[in-house]
């Protein structure tokens, strides 16, 4: 009986497992393998080149992504705290709006909005009565602005969900003891929702570091993020080796986070039971 159950169980997960193996694990292994091949031989040349030319871009990717995550967390926690205490349907709907706008459209809209003679500056120059203002559309500021704009609703959705799921009795208890709203957020809500906030942070990180469209539309020409460099290697040089090496490097960056996340979750639950 026991064995039969196991076989049935295995058969049930087989389709999902096969799809995962075929569409994810196989390409992953292939990508890692190709990153070590140069002119038909095993070598580290691709990595040498990747670090030689793109080390600054790798660092830039990590920094921009981390700063994005920082801003996104602050904004989405503020938003979620506000909505936790106060029912405001209009805001509740509006903050989700960017979720339904494709990255390409956001990139294009921001690039027109933030251009030196774009919508924002045309308005500002008229109000401030100055001739010229610098544009942000091809700088890290514009890029960061756009990333934060795009990623915040997603993180806020997760965090607000967690905040709302929190039992109100804790908050009421704190309030009865005279805690201000700010204090409640920092000492009760955030600590209790830490796992969800971590999830939001990690998902934001992964989505940001792997995005390409927004960078191409509005990012600065230099320095650039890893994804743009990968595209460049493939399109202009037909060079899959270095492109894959860069891919593996970004896997590693994400894996560091994943390991940290698993450890953290395990610690929260008092160790993974299995």
């Amino acid at each position: 009986m026991e064995v039969r159950n196991r076989i049935v169980g295995f058969l049930l997960i087989l389709p999902a497992f096969l799809i995962l193996a075929l569409l994810y694990v196989y390409p992953l292994i292939r990508a890692i393998w190709m990153s070590f091949i140069k002119d038909g031989f095993l070598s580290l040349a691709n990595y040498a080149k990747a670090f030689d030319i793109y080390s600054r871009d790798i660092l830039y990717s990590v920094v921009i992504t981390s700063v994005t995550v920082g801003f996104v967390l602050v904004l989405s926690i503020l938003l979620a705290s506000y909505l936790r205490f106060k029912e405001w349907r209009f805001l509740d709907i509006m903050y989700r709006l960017p979720l339904f706008i494709p990255f390409l459209i956001v990139g294009h809209a921001m690039r027109i909005f933030l251009a030196p003679h774009g919508t924002l500056n045309s308005l500002l120059t008229r109000i401030l009565k100055v001739e010229e203002l610098p544009g942000f559309s091809r700088s890290w500021i514009g890029l960061l602005w756009t990333f934060v704009w795009v990623m915040t609703p997603y993180a806020a959705l997760i965090i607000l969900g967690a905040f709302r799921a929190l039992d109100s009795s804790y908050i009421e208890a704190a309030r009865n003891l005279g805690a201000s709203k700010g204090k409640i957020v920092f000492t009760v809500i955030i600590p209790m929702c830490k796992p969800s906030i971590m999830v939001a942070a990690i998902l934001t990180f992964v989505r940001t570091i792997s995005s390409l469209t927004i960078l191409v539309m509005i990012g600065p020409n230099t320095p650039n993020m890893i994804t743009v460099d990968m595209m460049f290697r493939i399109n202009f040089f037909n060079d899959w080796g270095v492109a894959n090496a860069l891919g593996v490097i970004s896997y590693l960056i994400v894996i560091v986070l994943a390991v940290y996340y698993l450890r953290f979750m395990a610690a929260e639950r008092g160790g993974i039971k299995g």
Binding site: R111, A115, P116, H117, G118, G135, S137, R138, V216, M217, I218, P220, N221, T222
Partner: peptide, 17 residues
């Protein structure tokens, strides 16, 4: 000035940037 792509150069010319 660094522009955004082929179209970006044309746009910037149009806007007088």
């Amino acid at each position: 000035t660094m522009t955004a792509g082929n179209a970006g150069t044309l746009d910037a010319l149009n806007r007088g940037e």
